[in-house]
């Protein structure tokens, strides 16, 4: 493969209807308290999730803390092995893949992490951090490698003269750029970004958001963008998936999720977000949910949201799990009474 980002990537055909990644009935359970003879229970962090990420799009994955969105991102990036299910990437199931074969796949599938302080090795220089993937995959050495590192640093708005500096010499926003450069250096097709801006100051966040958008246009990247900030997700995403307690509650294109949410949880979530405009704020009527997200060790029966849902009807909502199905025009929602709040 050529290391200049251009010809190969420029010619990368992006058919936005095509699934780049298909997630099929994926579960991830973390066992707790299991003794020698088994028993114990499990944190059901991700519990039967199916969706696809289309080539060239940004899929926003949102939810409150503890809903399993980060775990799902890591399962897709193969940083946690899935308990069951399939993650099909470019026609191959990644879940049973091991060793060298999986390692080769990682070239195409990179991750950007939330904490730019913890995700960079403090004992490596920036040049080593960004060049390491090239070394690992034997893609470039010597002058060629340093040229590529220079190029990626410039692309990400970093000054290549600072190649020999250490991460602690950089600010949070600059470190996040280093993390992005490291992910980008291999020319991946798919990037899982787990809360990439939430640790940054407000005035820095826009810099990183704009950088990610520019890189996407330029390198035809596909993003899974995980965040709890629904305003940022609206800004970046083509489609949005809403997660609650290990399940996907609703998935649709960004416009219809925000303008016409069908699931009562999505509706409550959106109505909770303050808008920086005092006049609109005076009019905003948040749907206040009762209580907080239940424990994923022992999730509620039936619809997981029924304990907090303002329109739940019994016994159907507490007994039958609503399937995630198309309600209007490919707008999927998992609710017995979708659109009725």
């Amino acid at each position: 493969m050529t290391l200049e980002a251009s010809p190969e990537v420029e010619s990368r055909v992006v058919d936005k209807q095509l699934a780049l990644v298909s997630v099929e009935d994926v579960t991830k359970h973390f066992p707790i308290g299991a003794g020698l003879l088994g028993g114990g229970s499990a944190v059901r962090a991700v519990d039967g999730v199916s969706f696809e990420v289309r080539a060239g799009e940004t899929l926003g994955l949102v939810g409150e803390s503890g809903c399993g969105k980060s775990t799902l991102g890591r399962v897709i990036a193969q940083l946690h092995p899935a308990t069951s299910g399939k993650v099909i990437f470019q026609g191959q199931d990644l879940v049973p893949m091991r060793g060298e074969k999986l390692r080769r796949m990682r070239q195409e599938l990179q991750m950007i992490f939330q904490d730019p302080y913890a995700s960079l090795n403090p004992r490596m220089t920036v040049g080593e951090i960004i060049g390491e993937p090239l070394k690992n995959f034997g893609l470039a050495r010597g002058k060629e490698r340093s040229n590529r590192v220079h190029e990626v640093m410039r692309t990400c708005g970093l000054n290549p003269n600072f190649l020999n500096r250490y991460p602690h010499e950089f600010s949070g926003g600059q470190r996040q750029r280093i993390g992005i450069a490291r992910a980008l250096v291999l020319n991946p097709t798919f990037i899982v970004a787990d809360e990439p801006i939430s640790a940054l100051d407000v005035s820095i966040q826009a810099q990183i958001v704009n950088l990610m958008e520019d890189l996407q246009n330029r390198f035809k990247l596909t993003y899974l963008f995980i965040a709890h900030d629904l305003s940022v997700v609206r800004h970046l995403s083509d489609r949005v998936a809403v997660m609650y307690l290990g399940k996907i509650m609703e998935i649709a294109d960004s416009h219809s999720i925000y303008e016409n949410p069908l699931h009562p949880y999505t509706k409550a979530l959106l109505s909770s977000i303050p808008i920086p405009d005092p006049d609109l704020e005076a009019k905003r009527q948040p749907i206040l949910l009762q209580g907080e997200i239940p424990s994923p060790v022992n999730p509620p029966s039936g619809c997981r949201f029924h304990t907090r849902c303002p329109i739940a009807q019994f016994p159907i909502c507490s007994e039958q799990v609503p399937p995630l199905e198309s309600k209007v025009d490919g707008h999927l929602a998992a609710c017995h009474f979708a659109g009725q709040l």
């Binding site: 600010s171 926003g173 100051d201 407000v202 005035s203 820095i204 966040q205 826009a206 810099q207 958001v209 704009n210 629904l230 305003s231 940022v232 609206r234 800004h235 970046l236 995403s237 960004s254 416009h255 925000y258 959106l270 977000i273 808008i275 920086p276 405009d277 609109l280």
Partner: peptide, 25 residues
């Protein structure tokens, strides 16, 4: 003025580009 324009808003549609405040505090 810049801070208000650098934040994505829930009520704004996609691709109204965000203003960046360059540099750092």
């Amino acid at each position: 003025w810049s801070l208000l324009r650098s934040m994505p808003r829930l009520d704004a549609a996609r691709h109204s580009k965000l203003l960046t405040i360059s540099g750092l505090p």
